[in-house]
């Protein structure tokens, strides 16, 4: 069974009187430990798809099953839990999704360690265990020595590594990275992508949203979006090897 299965997913936004069709029937399966890039020009529905996969948003119609859990299913009514509540979505995000954002999105004025602790706090894990887990995650991204620094005392690359540690700390089903190198220089970008590759090698499932071909090539599979539909779904040289 696929880790992630979207079937005929649509998303329609109502902007004033106009209905914007951001997704027009997406069918997508991602297996465990896959490394997938989602590419497409702006307005192609990349962000919307990422929000839906990340459970930040729900589809207008279609079915979305993540790690055996039905996130959205038109055919099951509200009572059958075909549509999850905000808090249920928050729980899934906390347990199954690790977000990495273009702008890092670390909380300012708290330490790197505390930033990494946040998902564990919301998961209700006790302080002692939580700190151990957060330190372990920071060790994985080679930032153990910087854990007591605040984000503004860290470089861009370091900040993104803290964000990656935060995404990893609760052992999510998917690591969801939205333009993770968009705000970084080329040297740092390579460093971050090396880290992503390593995390994939360690067994993580990674979905990477980007518009840079070079970055996308790190994945084993590239899904091209156009006008809210999947235009092409190709396997990269890395995927063939």
């Amino acid at each position: 069974m696929a880790l992630l299965a979207l079937t005929n997913v649509t998303k329609v936004y109502q902007v004033g009187a106009v209905a914007v069709h951001a997704l027009r029937g997406i069918d997508l399966m991602v297996e465990k430990n896959e490394y997938v890039s989602i590419m497409g020009p702006s307005g192609s529905g990349k962000s919307t798809l990422m929000n839906v996969i990340g459970c930040l948003d729900t589809p207008t119609s279609g079915t979305y099953i993540l790690d055996g859990k039905t996130v959205h299913d038109d055919n099951i009514g509200q009572n059958g839990n075909g549509k999850l509540s905000e808090d249920e979505l928050a729980f899934i995000r906390n347990q199954k999704i690790g977000f990495v954002f273009q702008t890092f999105n670390l909380l300012p004025r708290i330490t790197a360690l505390h930033n990494v602790e946040l998902p564990l706090i919301y998961a209700g894990i006790h302080k002692k265990e939580r700190i151990e887990m957060a330190k372990e995650a920071l060790r994985k991204v080679n930032l153990e020595d910087r854990m007591h620094h605040q984000p503004n005392e860290l470089s861009g690359g370091q900040r993104q590594r803290v964000a990656i540690a935060r995404a990893l700390v609760n052992n999510p089903s998917i690591l969801l990275a939205d333009e993770p190198t968009g705000n970084l220089d080329s040297v740092t970008s390579r460093e971050i992508m090396k880290l992503m590759d390593k995390l994939h090698d360690e067994g993580n499932t990674i979905i990477l949203v980007t518009h840079e071909t070079e970055i996308a090539q790190h994945a084993h599979r590239i899904v091209h979006l156009l006008d809210g539909k999947i235009d092409r779904d190709e396997t990269t040289p890395k995927g063939n090897s």
């Binding site: 990340g54 930040l56 905000e86 808090d87 928050a90 729980f91 995000r93 906390n94 347990q95 977000f99 999105n105 670390l106 909380l107 946040l118 998902p119 919301y122 998961a123 935060r166």
Partner: peptide
């Protein structure tokens, strides 16, 4: 607002 958004993305429930 941004902080609230981040917290929610990381799994903070409404009540929290």
């Amino acid at each position: 607002t941004k902080e609230i958004g981040i917290r929610k993305a990381l799994g903070a429930k409404k009540s929290i």
